[in-house]
Structures are given as C-alpha cells and as structure tokens.
C-alpha cells in the first residue's frame, strides 16, 4: 500500500509539473498576455511600464523558470484584474464547487448504483429496459439543457427550489442534479454490464448451489467484483465533474470556480487561469490517488502488483 502511495506521489509531481508548463505555454501562445490589461489606446511608455511591472519584459525562458519554480509551490502572484492573490481567489470559490461536485458524485453513485444492480438482477425485464432508457437519456442530454429544464420545472413552475445558485443549501440541488445525470447514466451502464458478466461466473453458481439468498449473492459476492470498473470510472469522473461544473455553474449562476475560470480566460487574467488549472490538476490527482487506494483495498491483486514495483507491502 505504501509502495502504491509513493508511486502515485512521484507520478503526481511529474503531472503537476507538466500541467504548469503546458498552461504557461498555452497562455503565451494564445497571443500577447497583456492583451486584456493594457488600456486600448495606451501610449507606448505606459505599455512598457505595465509590461515591466508584470515582469513580461524579460526573456520567455527566464519568465518560465521563475513562473515554474513559484507555481510548484502554489505561488501565482496577484490576479491582474482583482489585485489580490490569485490562489486565494480560486480557493475562496472552491468550497462551493466541491459541494456541488461531491453532491453530484454522491447522487450519481446512489442512483447509478441502484439502477445498475436492479437492472442486472433481472436482465430483459421491464425494470432493466426502464433503467437502460433512463441511462441513454442521461448520457444523451447535455447538462446545460437539462439544467434549463430543471429550472423551468422546479424553479419556474413548481417554485420548490431557487433558479440560480443563491447562497444556501437549496441552491446546490438543481445544479447537482444536472451535473449528476451523465456520470449516473454511465455508472449504471458500466455496473449493469459487469454485474451481468459476474453473475454468470462459476463462483456465483456455487454460491447459489450453497443456497445463499439472492440479496447476499448480489450485494456481497457479485457487487464487490463488479464494482471495480465502476470505481475506476468514478475516480476518472473528477475531471469531468470539474469541467462540467464550468458549464453548469454558468447556467445556474452558481458561485463556484467554473464562473471564475471562464471570466479569467475571457479577460486573460493569466495568474488566475494558472492558479485555477493548478488547483484543478491537484484535485484530480488527489481523487485519482484516492480511487486507486480504494481499488487496492477492494482488490488484493492490485496491492501485490504495486508491491512488485518496489514498494513494501503492508
């Protein structure tokens, strides 16, 4: 287990360094970084002053080295438009996005998990057909459209929930539903497929022959084995959820990091963009590491494989 962790840590640092470098390159390739900052019509000496004060008058390799060494420590300087530390501006908005993404993934696991097991328990039944249709819709409907429909039904017609992300717990429900639809649907299909396969295995037949209850076979024997691909998928969803949050937060005017990122890109607030990408990369790495550890806990074979890579098995 420790070996796996050490492995993951090395990997994480390398990925973070890559992310920092690519962000720097992209933001500089996308045109003059100061495009959004120099007032239209600024005289050349004002432009030079601004360039110097942001350190953009130095050679690009020098800027890169300085940036990379600071970025690896989480220091991105001040947001050009907000005039306060960029990382702080991102972290301030992070809890709202974390609440949204956590609720969405919890909903996806609950709904997708339940539908997946229910559908696999009786393949070909009306239950199965209904669940598969729901999954098809969940995967096909774009989040921004689903969000708008949820607003129309629950906020405009029924008036049960606020239309947009007012501060307070009620504001997170509709955006979380919109965001959860796709991962729930995918989870359901994955789980159903691997459950159906597992339920045909010899050891399940043996369990049946022993006279174990249907519930015990489904939940204790089949689900534990069938859950692995679904778990791996859930880990990978961190990126999707944070990306999807950018869209969904826009639809619901939800005060998370998505809106901040869109704004930062549109106004070329480079420190803010870099801080955002860094935080998101760190989050995705963290979630993936966690998913890897959970998978290793469930499946002893993964632990042995990690040990073979040089780490000491616990």
């Amino acid at each position: 287990m420790v070996g796996l962790l050490v492995n993951r840590m090395f990997f994480a640092v390398a990925v973070l360094f890559g992310v920092v470098s690519v962000t720097f390159a992209l933001m500089h390739l996308a045109g003059d970084p100061l495009a959004g900052l120099i007032p239209p019509g600024a005289p050349p000496d004002v432009e030079n002053d601004i360039r110097r004060s942001y350190g953009l008058d130095r050679p690009v390799p020098e800027q890169y080295l300085d940036f990379a060494s600071r970025a690896m420590r989480g220091d991105f300087g001040e947001s050009w438009r907000q005039g306060r530390p960029a990382l702080a501006a991102v972290l301030e908005r992070l809890p709202a996005t974390m609440a949204l993404a956590s609720l969405a993934i919890a909903l996806a696991i609950l709904v997708g998990g339940f539908l997946g097991v229910a559908a696999a328990a009786r393949p070909g039944s009306p239950w199965d057909a209904g669940a598969r249709l729901a999954a098809l819709l969940g995967q096909a409907i774009p989040a921004f459209w689903l969000g708008t429909m949820l607003i129309l039904v629950f906020a405009v017609d029924l008036r049960w929930l606020p239309a947009s992300g007012l501060p307070g717990p009620a504001g997170v429900i509709l955006p979380a539903l919109a965001l959860a639809a796709y991962p729930a649907a995918t989870l359901m299909r994955l789980l159903r497929a691997s459950m159906v396969e597992t339920l045909g295995a010899d050891y399940i037949r043996t369990a049946r022959a022993k006279g174990l209850s249907r519930r015990r076979i489904l939940l204790e024997h089949a689900l534990r084995n069938a859950a692995l691909p679904a778990l791996a998928f859930t880990g990978l969803q961190a990126g999707f959820l944070l990306g999807g949050a950018v869209i969904v937060e826009g639809v619901f005017a939800y005060p998370g990091i998505g809106g901040l990122a869109l704004d930062a890109v549109a106004t070329r607030d480079i420190p803010l963009v870099e801080a955002f990408v860094w935080v998101v990369a760190l989050l995705i790495l963290g979630v993936n590491t966690l998913a890897g550890l959970i998978a290793a806990w469930i499946d002893p074979r993964l632990r042995e494989r990690a040990a073979a890579f040089g780490g000491a098995a616990p």
Partner: peptide, 9 residues
C-alpha cells in the same frame, strides 16, 4: 452571466 438564467430569475 447567462441571459436565459436571468430570464428564469
């Protein structure tokens, strides 16, 4: 930011 959301508001 989204015009449709302002309308629903």
């Amino acid at each position: 930011a989204d015009g449709t959301t302002r309308v629903t508001d």
